[in-house]
Amino acid sequence: MSTFIKKYSKWLAPIGSFAAFLLLWQVASLNVSADFLPSPLMVWDELVRLSQTPVGGTSLLGHVGYSLRRVMIAFILAVAFGLPLGLLMGWNRVCDKIVSPIFELLRPIPPIAWIPIAILWLGVAEGSKIFICFVGAFVIMVLNSYTGMRYVDPLLIDAARSFGANPRQQFFNVAVPACLPSIFAGVQNALSMAWMCVLAAEMVGAREGVGFIIIQGMDLNKSSMILVGMILIGIVGSLLAALLRGAERALCPWRSEMV
């Protein structure tokens, strides 16, 4: 019996925790009206219903697909532009000094604050939503890559130099690999930021996407619908994060300490 517990103890805690949460929820929902807080079962029913009937013309999975598509496009663009920029700024002081003032001006502005001007520029279509996600993810990508590069151990660079490596070789063969942990942290943070931004953008104005689902729920006064949306959002967000963590483990086998 004790060996059984030991073997599955890793799973026992989260499952127990989840079961306790469901119990709490059920108890709470019994004491208030169903409109206010539906019970877990009612939310489950709603999920089943929604997966069968389209919301606003799109199936549930279709909505998730719309959101994911916007996130992925923005995320890939953010990494494609933000990663090289951050690395270069961290490596080359001149580049840093040129870009910094503009970056520091725009950085404190939360990506969500860009929504009005993005809509003004790009309308309520895909473009503005992707733009918002891009802004959020881009800033994070630049910051993480920059910090990673600045914190590369100068000893490693000197070691490379002592073998006659030129600056280009120092950058690509030593500095960039040394930054990989920070780069991965940046990628993970950027993706989760993009996910949050897509929600905000969709809530402000969209006809598809998970953000739209929860706004619909609010407009229709259906709290169960909102809760289904929220759960979906949480699950997809967690899955994306887990995927990236897995990618890091696969690509960086020398990192024995897994955070």
Binding site: L156, A159, R161, W254
Partner: peptide, 18 residues
């Protein structure tokens, strides 16, 4: 400047962890 005619061994090893 540095060159391949001189090799260096460092106190803190300076091995590339990756």
């Amino acid at each position: 400047g540095p060159g391949p005619d001189r090799g260096m061994v460092f106190q803190r090893y300076a091995l590339f962890p990756w």
